[in-house]
């Protein structure tokens, strides 16, 4: 039986982890390679890097980090943030990323998914959708970290990216992100019910129960979380053991 995945996400800015794990044994708390290694040794099913570097000059740093991480972590590595061109994807894949997550570039032009999945295969194209609730059971796609409204309906958009060849959807609730009050389960349900590709839930995890809700109530195939793992509140293993105790199948 296919297992539900737990994916820790590391935010990387100018080559350094922000909001990183606060473990005493870390030699360098800002080193993304070292943190990724801790997660993969701890049982993470995948590792996700989100590059939040603002300036273009420092874009190269993420390539270097991916290269180093891929030599030490032998679980799938997803990289997102600032991916706008086919060349960006090529660079990340050549450096050792297994999947690339695309966001704004797809909102601007959904054919970019088609082009990318045709060239590299659907298996490595993840479309990140940032959605915000606009009325009852209605969500809209936002870009630029929730600042820019697009007028695009999130459910319709999810269907469209599936048709265009996306292999997975990384769905973040902009209302919930950073609140630690749990995923937007209704949003998740709406998207998982109307698409046939795996959906990764993101935004809002504060407790292990939230992970359970994302999978069981929301229908997500994988759950992504940042802060509950970074600050050492929970280890990946604890999260998996908890889910397992509630009959959610995970890789132990």
């Amino acid at each position: 039986m296919l297992k539900n995945r737990i994916i820790p996400c590391l935010d990387v800015k100018d080559g350094r982890v922000v909001k990183g794990i606060n473990f005493v044994e870390l030699k360098d708390a800002g080193d993304p390679v070292e943190q990724a290694k801790i997660y993969s040794d701890g049982g993470a099913d995948e590792i996700c890097f989100l590059d939040i570097t603002a300036s273009n000059e420092n874009r190269e740093t993420i390539i270097d980090i991916v290269r180093k991480t891929a030599k030490e972590c032998f679980v799938p590595l997803t990289v997102g943030g600032g991916v706008r061109t086919i060349q960006n994807i090529t660079d990340l894949l050549l450096a050792g990323a297994d999947k690339v997550s695309i966001n704004t570039a797809v909102v601007k032009n959904v054919d970019f998914v088609k082009e990318a999945s045709k060239k590299f295969g659907s298996q490595c194209i993840v479309v990140a959708i940032d959605a915000k609730k606009v009325s009852d059971n209605k969500w809209e796609v936002f870009t630029h970290g929730g600042r820019n409204k697009t007028g695009i309906d999130a459910v319709e958009f999810a269907k469209k990216v599936e048709e265009s060849g996306a292999g997975e959807i990384l769905l973040t609730s902009m209302d919930k992100d950073g609140t630690k009050s749990g995923y937007d389960v209704d949003l998740l349900k709406s998207i998982t019910n109307s698409t046939n590709i795996p959906v990764i839930a993101s935004g809002g995890v504060g407790t292990l129960d939230h992970l359970y809700d994302g999978i069981v109530k929301g229908g997500a195939s994988a759950v992504l979380a940042a802060s509950i793992f970074h600050y050492g509140e929970y280890k990946i293993k604890e999260a998996k053991e908890y889910l397992n105790s509630k009959n959610v199948s995970v890789r132990l």
Binding site: M1, S122, G167, N196, I197, P198, R251
Partner: peptide, 16 residues
């Protein structure tokens, strides 16, 4: 055969 959408495709992730 994903049994009319009962199983998501691609088959992505860890399986025994």
């Amino acid at each position: 055969d994903n049994q009319k959408g009962k199983f998501k495709l691609p088959h992505i992730g860890w399986n025994e």
